[in-house]
Simulated scan of single mutants.
Amino acid sequence: MSIRIGLQLQPQHADYDRIRDTLRAAEDAGADVVFNWDHFFPLSGDPDGKHFECWTMLGAWAESTSRVEIGALVTCNSYRNPELLADMARTVDHISKGRLILGIGSGWFEKDYDEYGYDFKTAGRRLDDLGAALPRIRDRWTKLNPAPTRDIPILIGGGGEKKTLRYTAEYAGIWHGFGDAETIAHKCAVLDGHCATIGRDPKEIVRSAAVNGKPSEQAQGLLDAGVSLFTVGVGGPDHDLALLQEWISWRDAQG
């Protein structure tokens, strides 16, 4: 699979104008995908600092860009009814002319749940809820008028080997993980096993990983593990894109 470079543009500690300008700069620099995240409060720095909501932002990003794919890394399944989320995704898919990736996970940030009145449940129950939501999302896409512009790619984030990776084998086109090359390689092997169990070609699933170091330090190991989408994270207020540009230059040098 072709090498692609993503940016997770974290919607924290910055005014929206600054976030929008960084989004456009990333697209101009050659990023393939720009993600935000689905939280209600910052995950680093001042815990009550500036922060913006995920999906309303994605609608604006769809109008503010013309080439990059966009999505959440990742949407929290707990925060929206699956049918509503499917409709939201279909709408952003149309606004963006077919550039949305539906990133989704089971949720983990307890402050979001407590402050906004969601039931945190247990990790196991949150994962069960995700497993129940995924077929509902796909079913709703078949009923919407107009239908999505394409088979919207589902990205599942997380490393749980019994449930998360099994759901990925069943429903997703992209898996996103965290960790070093050895960890990613192990998770990919587990995912391949789930694909074998259900009779799916594991090559249909793109492997994605977060990167926080230079390509010279991380790229080859992750490539050997099967990763083809490499995503740099950046937060406000500075939005330093130097590392992103290094990964883009590395991608371009691969031919």
Rank of each mutant, 00 (worst) to 15 (best):
D87C: 06
H94I: 13
L100M: 11
G45Q: 05
V34K: 03
Y113N: 09
D48E: 14
G59Q: 08
F40V: 00
I70P: 01
D48R: 10
D93L: 02
K111L: 09
F41W: 11
G71Q: 08
D38N: 01
L58I: 10
N36D: 09
N81D: 15
G49A: 03
H51A: 02
N77R: 11
D32K: 03
P82T: 04
G103K: 04
H51P: 04
K97I: 05
E110P: 02
S44I: 05
L43H: 07
R80C: 01
S44A: 10
F52K: 10
E115P: 00
D112C: 01
G98R: 09
W61H: 10
W61F: 15
A86E: 07
D114N: 14
K50C: 01
E110K: 14
H94E: 09
G71E: 10
A60W: 07
E69R: 15
H51T: 09
T91N: 13
W37Q: 02
S96M: 08
H51S: 09
E115D: 10
H39G: 00
P42L: 02
G59S: 15
P47F: 06
V92R: 11
N77S: 15
W61E: 05
D93C: 03
G59L: 05
A72E: 09
E63R: 10
E110F: 04
C76F: 03
E53A: 03
P47W: 06
G105Q: 09
I70C: 00
N36M: 03
H94A: 10
A86F: 04
Y113H: 15
V68N: 10
N36P: 01
L73N: 14
V74N: 05
D114W: 08
